[in-house]
Amino acid sequence: MAAVTAVPQELWSIVGTALGAVIALLGVVLTSWLAGRRQRQQLAHDASQRDLQRDHDVRESALDRKMQLRRDVYLPAIEATLSALSSMGSLCDPLVERKDVAKRWAEYMAAIGKANAIARVETAGAVGELGNNLSAMFFELSMLRGPIEQAYQKFLANAGVVERVLSEQRRWTELQTNAVVHGAVERDQWDRLVGQLDFVKRQFVEWSALRDEAAGELAEHQLVFLKRLAELQRAISVKGVNASLALREELSLKDDDPDALRAVYEDHARVASETITSAIEELSQKLAVARASAKVMLPNG
């Protein structure tokens, strides 16, 4: 205690000041170290957040590209599944070029094929089954198109002869009329005019009958086509609905209602079936009338 009291007051003052300075320095160093630590932690956190955000953005971008690809591929495929059937129906019309139908058909099948290439397993199964059935259907109906084309060409040829015979009939009628008006016609010339006109009239009746016969054959082949189309349409419409719904499900369209869509698609298929049935009934009635008319005219021929 004596040693402590022997220390001069000025020395204690210097020591106190030095200790205060050291403590203050330690405080500054500690504060700076803590601040640096917090800054390093913040920087590491920010870097981690940036990495997470970057990964998130990459995933979102990849998902957006994937969904855009699906929209670009699936929407045309859905349209193709609905349009393919109607394009096959046009094969029944001989005025529609087969090459035009084949071109549209190839476009529809290409759209369906693209969707099948990127779809999930379940969707690819539904789309693939539809594509296979559509191809088989198109091949079968294309075979039935052949007799329609042949009958139509026969009808056109006979109708062309009828037109030429009518032209000849008008010409000989005009010659006969001129002979009557001007008079002084030799008997053999008159007999020649009458005989030629009678021949042309018989030709008209004969070729008109052949033309009508070809028209009947055309209608019969179209009837066979439509009946088979109706059978195939009923069988394949379910597969078309399933494929369309599977594609829409992968698109995850907002407010999509699968049950409501199924009802809409099935209603469209029903209307299409009714349209084909109506065409069959109308063509059958016309064919029956034509046959009845031919039987009535046959005894007079």
Rank of each mutant, 00 (worst) to 15 (best):
253 L>K: 04
256 D>A: 15
245 L>E: 02
240 G>L: 01
234 R>L: 14
266 E>S: 15
231 E>C: 03
250 E>V: 10
260 A>W: 12
260 A>H: 11
269 A>Q: 10
232 L>H: 05
262 R>A: 11
228 R>C: 07
255 D>Q: 13
230 A>L: 12
251 L>H: 14
243 A>I: 12
256 D>C: 08
230 A>F: 04
248 R>A: 06
230 A>I: 08
243 A>K: 12
259 D>L: 13
250 E>D: 12
242 N>R: 15
244 S>E: 01
237 S>T: 07
267 D>N: 06
254 K>A: 14
229 L>D: 04
259 D>V: 13
241 V>P: 04
236 I>Q: 13
256 D>E: 15
262 R>H: 07
235 A>V: 09
252 S>T: 13
235 A>W: 02
262 R>N: 12
264 V>H: 02
247 L>G: 09
259 D>R: 12
249 E>D: 11
260 A>R: 13
269 A>F: 09
247 L>E: 08
261 L>E: 05
252 S>L: 10
266 E>Q: 15
241 V>Y: 00
235 A>P: 05
236 I>F: 06
261 L>Y: 03
229 L>T: 06
243 A>D: 11
228 R>P: 05
236 I>V: 14
253 L>V: 08
268 H>G: 01
237 S>A: 07
269 A>V: 12
232 L>P: 10
248 R>L: 14
253 L>H: 06
260 A>F: 07
263 A>M: 14
237 S>M: 02
246 A>Y: 06
229 L>K: 02
270 R>M: 05
235 A>K: 14
233 Q>W: 04
266 E>G: 06
252 S>E: 15
270 R>S: 06
250 E>M: 13
260 A>E: 10
265 Y>T: 03
232 L>S: 04
247 L>A: 11
268 H>Y: 02
241 V>Q: 05
240 G>F: 00
261 L>C: 04
228 R>T: 09
250 E>H: 07
257 D>W: 01
233 Q>M: 00
244 S>V: 07
231 E>K: 05
253 L>P: 00
265 Y>S: 00
265 Y>W: 08
228 R>Q: 08
252 S>I: 02
263 A>K: 14
237 S>Y: 01
270 R>G: 01
270 R>N: 03
264 V>I: 00
249 E>M: 10
243 A>Q: 08
238 V>H: 12
267 D>K: 10
266 E>C: 09
265 Y>V: 02
231 E>V: 10
246 A>V: 00
259 D>A: 15
234 R>K: 14
238 V>Q: 14
253 L>R: 04
257 D>R: 07
251 L>F: 05
241 V>L: 10
258 P>A: 07
267 D>T: 09
249 E>S: 13
232 L>V: 11
267 D>P: 00
237 S>V: 04
267 D>A: 12
246 A>G: 04
261 L>K: 02
255 D>I: 07
263 A>C: 02
246 A>N: 02
253 L>C: 03
